[in-house]
Simulated scan of single mutants.
Amino acid sequence: MVRILGIDPGSQRTGVGVIDVADDGSLKHVFHGALVVVGEETFPLRLKRIFDELCGIIGAHDPAEAAIERVFMARNADSALKLGQARGAAICAVVSRGITVHEYAATEVKQAVVGSGRADKTQVQHMIGIILGLKGPLQADAADALAIAITHAHTRSSIQRVGIPRTAWRRRR
């Protein structure tokens, strides 16, 4: 059994999801939620809260591995910088606990859980509910975090079976 933490970083809400992966590849939901940091007085306090709350979740659930969404280029440079800083706070929280961080592009995550790299958020939410057997609506950021964890679970399983590192899978352009 391996416990995986998935993180969907955001400067206002950071999605967090934890799953267990059995040796046979079956998945079990452990935890999910969204860290809502928009109420903090300053942006640096938002980053601190992301770091502190993730450290608490890591302490409570003790994941062995972590996966986070890779930053994409946004239209607004200020938003992209803030997203990058929130992502950095999340990565620091994970690495400070001695856990390796694996990164996935949003299109990789959507492809892994929905079958299309262009899926929308509602499709991801729906599929995560089905895959993990969750009842009721899922908050979008939490669903994305669970999707990132599931993507990592599938990727690590493929790497173990095939024996080829993930970096060798990437197309060179």
Rank of each mutant, 00 (worst) to 15 (best):
T151H: 11
V113L: 14
L138V: 01
G56N: 05
F43P: 01
I128V: 14
K82C: 02
H152S: 13
R49G: 05
L47W: 04
H29V: 05
T100M: 08
K28S: 14
G84L: 10
E53F: 01
Q139R: 05
G133K: 05
S26R: 14
K135I: 13
A89N: 12
A147P: 11
A147K: 04
I130P: 00
T122A: 15
L27H: 10
N76F: 03
A86Y: 04
P137T: 07
S157P: 00
R75G: 15
Q111V: 02
K48Q: 13
P137R: 15
Q111D: 06
A89L: 06
C92S: 12
R156C: 13
K110Q: 06
D24P: 06
H152V: 11
F51K: 11
S26F: 01
I50T: 11
V37R: 00
R46P: 09
H154Q: 15
D78I: 14
I130H: 06
A143E: 06
L54D: 15
S96H: 11
S96K: 10
V38N: 10
G88W: 00
A153K: 07
Q85G: 03
A90W: 05
G133W: 01
P137E: 14
E69V: 13
S79Y: 08
V36W: 09
L35A: 11
L81F: 15
I130R: 12
G115R: 06
T155P: 07
S116K: 15
I131V: 13
E53W: 02
G129L: 03
A60C: 04
L27W: 12
A89P: 08
G133A: 04
T107H: 09
C92A: 15
A119P: 04
D144W: 00
I159P: 02
G117I: 07
R75P: 12
G39T: 08
E40C: 10
I68W: 08
E41Y: 12
V36K: 15
E40I: 07
A93L: 07
I130L: 12
A143F: 02
S116P: 00
K121H: 05
R70F: 01
H61N: 15
I58P: 02
E41G: 10
G115L: 07
A67H: 04
P63S: 09
I148P: 09
A90V: 02
A80T: 11
S158E: 12
I128K: 05
G33K: 03
A119C: 05
V113I: 15
S116M: 02
V71S: 13
I91E: 00
A74R: 12
K82H: 07
T42W: 00
I58M: 02
D52M: 04
A119N: 04
F51H: 13
V21Y: 00
A142M: 11
A64G: 15
V113Y: 05
T107A: 14
A149I: 10
D23W: 00
A105Y: 09
L47D: 03
D23G: 14
A67V: 05
L132H: 02
T42Y: 00
I57A: 02
R70Y: 00
V114K: 09
M73C: 03
V30S: 12
I128C: 03
V113P: 08
L35G: 07
A119K: 06
V21E: 12
Q85R: 12
A64P: 00
V30G: 08
A89F: 08
R87D: 02
S157R: 14
A105K: 06
G84C: 12
H152M: 13
S96W: 11
A34L: 07
D52C: 01
F51C: 11
I128S: 01
T42K: 04
Q125D: 02
I130S: 06
V114F: 13
